[in-house]
Amino acid sequence: MSVLVNKNSRVIVQGFTGSEGTFHAGQMIEYGTNVVGGVTPSKGGQKHLDRPVFDTVAQAVAATQANVSIIFVPPSFAADAIMEAADAGISVIIAITEGIPVKDMMAVKSYLQTKKGITLIGPNCPGVITPEEAKVGIMPGFVFKKGKIGIVSKSGTLTYEASDQIVKAGLGISTAIGIGGDPIIGTTTKEAVELLMNDPETEGIVMIGEIGGNLEADAANWIKADGNRKPVVGFIAGQTAPKGRRMGHAGAIIGGANDTAAAKMEIMKACGLHVVQSPADIGATMLKALKK
């Protein structure tokens, strides 16, 4: 098992022939991901990285039976690319693009509600990896060794850090999901945690959040209501961030008293999560939590 992506995933790359798309598609192929082709409008019929290029996602799906798409399209065209993938029947859409306007994402979310069975991950995220099966993202593959811990995170490099600690603690990763740091994202912390909670291969979950919004509190409340079936180690970045300043990610901004790191960590603790004050303690805390 594992969630979202695995060795059977048939992946296409939107923005295939651009520099980002080319580089990361190359890395994904090298990792062993089953990349079956790509889409760049008006470049259909060509070959790129030894894979077919299509004009539209619909053509790509018809020719390759792709079920996963990863998007490297520039921010001004990215919302359109997500909707095209949804329209073509792609079931897992992973949007890496950073900098999509909020209004565009509102339209995307509204559009996706008219479709069934589609999971959007991101945007502004590192992607999803199921070690030794499929890397559909921009993360360094070697950091993620196969194992039993799932990761849900709003951040890229902090996910790599967490995975590195988990792997060095001798545990390994089932699936790591980078959900993204924007104010509007496709899959929420709670939804990603739920996937891992229901995955028989995952025995523990690392949940990494940031200041801003209430996704982590929602997830924590759900975890408790669901009966704390698996240990969850939680960390919220931005304990020292000032109010009202945007910290790199578009969504990382403290709006009121309820979306500070302290407030979120309080709720997570109250819901039975293993909350770490220092991001250096994620691996050791998971090891301890599993032994209980």
């Binding site: 995170s153 709003k154 951040s155 890229g156 490099t157 902090l158 996910t159 850090e161 740091g181 990494i208 940031e210 200041i211 960390f235 970045a237 931005g238 304990q239 020292t240 961030a241 300043r245 910290m247 790199g248 990610h249 990382a252 790191a261 004050q277 220092s278 991001p279 250096a280």
Partner: peptide, 24 residues
């Protein structure tokens, strides 16, 4: 730091080490 999340986490580590972050 490289990455916004890790940058915030690094600020938090500075605080836990007895300092105060001068920047993000």
């Amino acid at each position: 730091v490289n990455g916004a999340g890790l940058a915030m986490a690094t600020m938090d580590i500075i605080k836990l080490s007895g300092g105060e972050p001068a920047n993000f």
